[in-house]
């Protein structure tokens, strides 16, 4: 099956007030395969929302190609938009009408049976609050309403820009379960989020963008594996002696306050053999697998530094020229 979303060489610049152009997108590529939950990550101002807006025909790209559900976007968007549900940033609704009426208006405009309104209200947990006017909703409830509006069309592709924005912990879990449920029903979901632990939990694949360019893409497991350096945390009673034993065998060791870190360990059993052989009994031997957050911070160079306030444009600019158009291959092998 062809990819659900294909973006190649996407460029978009905004004129600055004092002259010059801010390149929001600088040859960005992305591929989302059908049936996947795809995470779209990037620091603030990296071009995520601009990408989604361009894909959905809300902003005009300067260059590049986009296809959505196999059709060129934005030219063929009217033909496929009925199969795409989307929320972009935090949509605002009129405050003086009820959530149910808001959805009814959208359903009427889109030719969706209004019975669907009750289904989606229940799906996002607003069934009993649907009659209340929107301005009485909390931020999280408005976000749920936005997700409900995206679900109205029973979409094949769901694009969610920061869906967890404003949600309480229970709401975040419900959103996670909802995304999983939709994915199990065959819906392709593209999620843009800053909650990386959530992305790691729910996504099959990710694309990371920084300063308008793709810095990494591929399956979450592949991404994490590619950053797995084979480090292990070791806890023993006698840290200095254990470090000496390991170094004597050629293992690179870093000493922590209450543990050791052994680097680039190919065979962890060798660590227990070495230390056990010297009467040093290991109380903990744990692989230090990278999480998505550490990968993200490393790739985008946005990790906070003590005593320094990181600026939004301090994110790393991927080296080299932007990729040529039509390169749909992800950077991380599957």
């Amino acid at each position: 099956m062809p990819p659900v979303i294909e973006i190649a060489g996407l460029r978009k610049g905004y004129r600055r007030l004092r002259g010059g152009v801010h390149r929001a997108l600088d040859g960005f590529d992305m591929v989302v395969e059908p049936g996947q939950v795809h995470g779209f990550l990037g620091p603030n101002g990296s071009g995520k929302t601009t990408t989604l807006r361009a894909l959905l025909g809300l902003v005009r790209a300067d260059a590049g190609e986009m296809r959505i559900l196999g059709q060129p976007s934005p030219s063929a968007l009217p033909q496929v938009i009925g199969r795409v549900g989307a929320i972009v940033e935090s949509p605002q609704f009129f405050g003086n009408i009820s959530g149910r009426r808001m959805l009814t208006l959208l359903a009427t405009a889109g030719g969706v049976p209004t019975a669907r309104v009750e289904e989606v209200l229940a799906q996002v947990g607003l069934r009993d609050r649907g009659k209340d006017i929107v301005k009485t909703y909390s931020l999280g409830m408005k976000q749920r309403l936005a997700v409900a509006s995206a679900l109205l069309k029973a979409p094949e592709l769901l694009i969610l820009d920061e869906p967890a924005n404003g949600l309480d912990p229970a709401g975040i879990r419900e959103m996670r379960d909802l995304v999983r449920l939709l994915a199990s029903q065959g819906v392709t979901v593209l999620v843009s989020s800053h909650i990386l632990a959530e992305i790691q939990l729910i996504c099959d694949s990710v694309t990371i963008i920084s300063r308008g360019r793709r810095v990494l893409a591929g399956p979450v497991s592949g991404v994490l594996a590619s950053f797995d350096s084979g480090d292990f945390r070791i806890r023993v009673d006698d840290l200095p002696r254990a470090a000496d034993v390991l170094r004597a065998d050629g293992v690179q060791v870093t000493t922590g306050p209450d543990h050791l870190v052994a680097h680039r360990v190919a065979a962890p059993a060798r660590l227990t053999e070495l230390l056990g052989g010297k009467g040093l009994w290991i109380s903990e031997l744990a692989p230090l697998t990278p999480d998505l957050e550490s990968v993200f911070l490393q790739l985008t160079a946005t990790a906070p530094q003590p005593g320094a306030a990181k600026q939004v444009d301090d994110a790393v600019l991927p080296a080299g020229p932007p990729p040529a158009p039509n390169e749909f291959a992800p950077e991380v092998p599957r």
């Binding site: 959905l56 934005p74 972009v88 949509p91 405009a109």
Partner: peptide, 18 residues
Amino acid sequence: GAEMTSGGLTNLLLWQPQ
């Protein structure tokens, strides 16, 4: 004007992009 300010028009364009 209210729809352009509130983002309501953007919402609508996600349903009818023309």
